[in-house]
Design a protein around this nucleic acid. Structure first.
Length: 391
DNA sequence: TCTGGGGTCCTAGGACCC
DNA sequence: TCTGGGGTCCTAGGACCC
């Protein structure tokens, strides 16, 4: 059966949300109307563009580039800090509003939702629902959204990416040759910066070129990814809108260091702080980890990672710190380190596993629990930040 | 490149087993 | 053993997304 899918995408989300928040707090300036960006902290070496205003975009500023470059492109550029607590709240409000239309909603990221309205339409046209959502979101929340309208997720997502901001676009099957095929292949979802030059080498420049390329050839060259890109270029996507919140498959935290680290002792201190954050989140989800993964990025931007299995599934801070140190011992350290990351993998539900012979000792569990309660009370970012500053 | 931080999924090679 | 083939698990790295 033909499905009725919308993709709702907040325009310049972080910038719009900061703008709305500033106005609400009495600011007379709407930063959406000036050359502005939301950016990281240059002093902490995390100075990249997270979102840009439409005018900043006209200066050629792109998301992800260093603020340093963005300023060169536009000298009157104003830089604002992001606030993820605000963003989470705005995102939740939008989601709750969308639940008025269907409960089959997938939160694809903090600023994007897929909605499946098949069977929820009550004789109304899908397009008119999209128009109503677009209008009401602005009236209620004072930020704008683009909405893509189609019969599957891929096409709806591609459609919402057409002209911005505050626009609704349809992209039905019969519209693919006109609306999608003339676009450069780089615009297709899941084709990134490494794949584009390979396709150009094969004389594949547009999404249409890709759609007409032999599927088997793409399979040979790119494996599964080749099949997927051919299907996407032809508007084929049977994936479901997943409405129930799934548990994470991995949990990780990483930090770019304000200054490079040179010794294992320095790195270990950071690992301890990261392990505290990661295991706190593990326990919050009531999950146990089977694998610990350490990532190091050198100052020349090379990434190295090593992983190890835990003896038994665990969410214990102590056990994960111990294994982290073991893993670190095995890693070469012949370049200055810029970033350190700790990730736990192969997660499983705590309730589902049987008690093992190696059950972690009760004392440690109680200590972790007590610390979690403290973190709940005072906010865990504060606690870890203090820890990091010390390290 | 003065280049974040959170994820997901895939691949390839080696170890190990039958 | 101058050694075949298949399956599974583990690990490191890479590609992609927002």
């Amino acid at each position: 059966m033909e499905r009725k899918i919308l993709h709702v995408d907040v325009n310049n989300a972080f910038l719009s949300w900061t703008a709305v928040d500033m106005l609400r707090k009495g600011s007379s300036l709407d930063i959406r109307t000036i050359p502005s960006i939301i950016g990281g902290d240059e002093e902490r070496r995390s100075g990249i563009v997270l979102a840009k205003s439409p005018i900043a975009k006209k200066f050629g500023i792109v998301t992800g580039e260093p603020i340093y470059f963005a300023k060169k492109k536009c000298n009157q550029l104003q830089v604002f800090k992001g606030d993820f607590n605000i963003y989470r709240k705005e995102s939740d409000n939008l989601y709750k509003f969308l639940l008025n239309y269907t409960d089959k909603i997938e939160r694809f990221s903090i600023d994007e939702c897929f909605m499946d309205l098949t069977g929820f339409l009550m004789d109304r046209e899908l397009l008119s629902i999209a128009q109503e959502i677009n209008k009401l979101v602005y009236e209620k929340f004072k930020f704008t959204v683009n909405i893509g309208v189609s019969s599957n997720k891929l096409l709806a997502k591609m459609a919402s990416d057409f002209e911005k901001p505050n626009k609704i676009h349809t992209l039905y099957r019969e519209e693919i040759p006109d609306k999608m095929w003339p676009l450069p292949v780089s615009e297709l979802f899941m084709i990134g910066r490494k794949t584009v030059p390979k396709l150009l080498n094969m004389q594949i420049k547009t999404i249409g070129d890709l759609a007409k390329t032999d599927k088997n050839l793409l399979n040979k060259k790119f494996g599964k990814h080749g099949i997927q890109m051919w299907e996407y270029a032809n508007g084929i996507d049977s994936s479901e809108v997943k409405n129930k919140k799934e548990l994470p498959k991995s949990i990780g935290n990483s930090v770019t260091l304000p200054k490079d680290a040179f010794t294992k002792e320095e790195i270990e201190k950071i690992l301890v702080a990261l392990a505290e954050q990661v295991t706190y989140r593990l326990r919050k989800y009531n999950l146990l980890a089977n694998v610990v993964n350490i990532q190091l990025r050198t100052n020349s931007f090379k990434d190295y990672s090593h992983q190890k299995k835990l003896k038994a599934p665990s969410s214990s801070t102590k056990e994960i710190i111990e294994l982290s140190k073991e893993i670190l011992e095995q890693m070469a350290l012949d370049e200055p380190i810029r970033l350190i990351g700790l990730r736990v993998d192969n997660l499983e539900n705590k309730d589902e596993i049987q008690i093992s012979f190696f059950e972690t000792d009760e004392k440690q569990n109680k200590l972790d629990k007590a610390i979690d309660e403290l973190k709940q009370k005072y906010g865990y970012t504060k606690i870890t930040r203090a820890r990091r500053a010390r390290g």
